[in-house]
Design a protein around this nucleic acid. Structure first.
Lengths: 210, 210
DNA sequence: CGCAGGTTTGACCATTTGGTCAAGAGAACA
DNA sequence: TGTTCTCTTGACCAAATGGTCAAACCTGCG
């Protein structure tokens, strides 16, 4: 009984497997984040990874498998900044720290941000389960925390869901709409992130101060 | 000398041409906004328009021509809300009215918003000229207006560019990330836009009040 | 009606794309 | 050293895709 002929199992077993799966995911992040799922091709990814196309398909069974592996690996990292928001800290400082962490992620991991943006703009066909699962659960948990802070008068009353939406949108904007931001500001490197941090800190501090 | 064999000129001449070009652009808006340029296919657009593929190519010479025609027609509408911001009105009310107009557009024209979002997330390959032209000019003009308002003390001092970015991102979020917003709030129809309007009005009023 | 123009489409084409396969090249280990 | 398992790839395939073309079909108008 032949079962699966070759194709490594879910976890890389050898050094070469580990190195190559990493190389592939790195290249795939480049390509998927730039062109979206349908716009990306295996040839592009293979070329970016310096491997042959059949070799990609030795490590991953299909194009969508590569995409899924990427998203799975990233979702964890992506939700980290929100998870780190502690209910027992100072409310305003916790929220502002969250804003700045999110902005840092937009600067450090713009490809990851664009990967999600591409996916969600197109209706989230491949990650809706994760949005309705992990993300939604975390958001509801944190919305309760924010409501508790409001109840104690530590922050001004605001709709916690729309507060989170506005934090996401304003910070991710600098990654997702990078092309537009740069066309308008034509900054040197990432210099505009300093201004963005100052602006967003002011924006949300004024919003939240009771 | 045959010149162009058939293919209508830039402007529709007959009723049928007018009707069909409109049908095609409408269908193309559906498809491009959902899948991005590379992800959209002529077959999809043809099917959505109820026309045959060769018939599409009778009215438009190529896929990119359809896309370009769409973008050209939309850029005008897209910049309207910002154009309407009057330098001689009450600063805070002008800016808040702009925010609400932008939010209205996200509700009324989500496909248009996603069309631009798709394009810009992927590096704006087809519209960079317009961003660096019309959009940039308009933004610089309005940034000066905002700075003048700040100089007179009518609004709190803020970076006008980042203010505009935050208005764009927070409002367009409800169109571009609609799938995510709905997954988290699961609203009936557009009911969440009422909460969004209230939230954003509060957010920017607090930001701008001196 | 007749017919000159605009309109529509079936059949076709070259290229691209995701994916397969069998055979060969490398490692590893006894 | 030989053998077994891992890794790599050139050649190939079917489907999808953007686009062409000649022939047929309308339609308005004299």
């Amino acid at each position: 009984m032949g079962i699966e002929r070759h194709m490594p199992g879910r976890q890389p077993r050898t050094r070469i497997q580990k190195k190559n799966t990493e190389t592939i995911l790195e290249a795939a992040l480049d390509v998927f984040s730039q062109h979206g799922f349908r716009g990306a091709t295996l040839d592009q990814i293979a070329k970016a990874a310096g491997l042959s196309k059949p070799n990609l398909l030795y490590y991953f069974p299909s194009k969508v498998a590569i995409h899924r592996a990427l998203i799975d690996g990233l979702m964890q990292t992506w939700l980290d900044p929100l998870r780190k928001m502690r209910a027992d800290g100072d409310p305003i400082e916790e929220l502002l720290a969250y804003v700045l962490r999110k902005l840092d992620m937009a600067r450090e991991y713009p490809r990851e941000s664009r990967l999600f943006a591409n996916e969600i703009v197109q209706g989230a066909p491949n990650i809706m389960d994760k949005i309705e699962g992990e993300l939604k659960d975390l958001v509801e948990e944190k919305a309760k925390v924010i409501e508790a802070w409001i109840a104690t008068g530590k922050i001004a009353p605001v709709n916690p869901y729309h507060l989170l939406f506005s934090i996401w949108s304003t910070t991710q904007h600098y990654a997702d709409f990078d092309a537009q931001v740069r066309a308008i500001l034509h900054p040197e490197g990432d210099s505009h992130f300093t201004d963005a941090a100052e602006y967003l800190e002011t924006l949300f501090r004024r919003m939240l101060t009771p």
